[in-house]
Write a protein that binds this DNA or RNA. Structure first.
Length: 314
DNA sequence: AACAAGGTCAACCGCGCAGGA
DNA sequence: CTCCTGCGCGGTTGACCTTGT
């Protein structure tokens, strides 16, 4: 990016297009023009507004930053969950995914995926489009995010109750219990075979088989063991494992990737999942790489923590 | 305090598609 | 049918920020 060029404002290049970061004046000018004339016809807007920007640049600035309904700040566990699910369904269709996360832009989601998810995959030395990674996401990451949704919804149920769609978590035994809500109209995620499946309103309507009215739920499946089963204890135990049973460990949904304990749990689950779904653990390793003993593991995880974790699995 | 390394995210680029002339 | 223009999308870049040494 040649931003240094963009900020030059000598008289001789007054006619040149500006590039780089937007100034407050430019933002005001763009916002004012759009409030007067509306969105769209970006090239015309760029010419008439007095901005020395391309129509493209104006559009991007408006959609990604200035538009009033653009949300700022960390993605909620619900949003992270949806991104994971929708990406597994649609791949890098960022704009399509963004349509299902009100206030979030495709750019933001794309950045989240690249900086958080892909980073995690790099550390584990697996490809994000690989079967192994998909399994990890479905069996490990999503259930934990669901748990986070449950926690956040129970603490803030009052604030989102009115607009929410019910979330249902099957406890894996017999009964179902409502665990929380997703605060978006028309969104629905169900756990089929232990993995969440997202359907938008249109798909729900067109797919009566899935149109149960409930949203996030787990359902039992003989051939798809639950994450809790991988650890040989109940879902509740799994949940507490995920949270505070490691001494000072505290689960932070916004920094899932950075926590050494998180990585440890993730890695162990990976190995177990690989066994349980009946493809060899070697499949979870890229050629010539053992991520149970590589340099990364050695620096990220200490032996005491590993021992504590293995104890919990017994 | 200074520097390096790594992470984040706003912005740019190139490509492809749609619609109109 | 071809060309042109506008627009949107996904990939990439690089400035800025944070964290570690």
């Amino acid at each position: 990016m040649s931003t240094s060029k963009s900020v030059s404002s000598s008289s001789e290049d007054d006619n040149e297009l500006r590039r780089g970061p937007w100034t407050l004046e430019e933002d005001n000018l763009l916002s004012q023009y759009i409030s007067d004339h509306g969105e769209g016809r970006w090239n015309l807007l760029a010419k008439r507004s007095g901005l020395k920007r391309t129509g493209k640049s104006c559009r991007l600035r408006w959609l990604n930053y200035l538009k009033p309904d653009v949300k700022r700040g960390n993605l909620t566990p619900q949003e992270q969950l949806l991104i994971l699910e929708l990406h597994s369904k649609w791949g890098n269709r960022w704009s399509k995914i963004a349509q299902h996360l009100p206030g979030r832009t495709d750019n933001e989601i794309k950045n989240y995926w690249r900086t958080r998810i892909q980073k995690q995959a790099r550390h584990l030395k697996i490809e994000t489009d690989s079967r192994e990674f998909q399994e990890l996401v479905r069996r490990f990451w999503m259930p934990r995010l669901l748990q986070k949704v449950k926690e956040s919804s129970s603490s803030s149920a009052m604030s989102i109750q009115n607009q929410a769609i019910p979330l249902v978590l099957d406890d894996g035994v017999s009964q179902q219990s409502t665990i929380g809500t997703i605060p978006w109209q028309g969104a629905c995620v169900s756990m089929n075979g232990g993995s969440p499946t997202y359907m938008d309103q249109h798909e729900q309507n067109s797919d009566s088989e899935h149109n149960s009215g409930s949203c996030i739920s787990f359902s039992e499946s003989a051939n798809m063991p639950k994450v809790s089963h991988h650890f040989g204890h109940t879902m509740d135990q799994f949940h507490s494992l995920s949270n505070n049973d490691f001494g000072t460990y505290s689960y932070d949904p916004y920094h899932v990737n950075d926590n050494a304990y998180e990585m440890e749990t993730f890695k162990a689950a990976t190995a177990k999942v690989a066994q349980d779904v009946q493809y060899p653990i070697a499949d979870c390793q890229t050629a010539g790489t053992d991520w149970l003993s590589n340099d990364f593991a050695c620096t990220m995880w200490n032996i005491d923590e590993l021992w504590q974790f293995s104890k919990l699995q017994k």
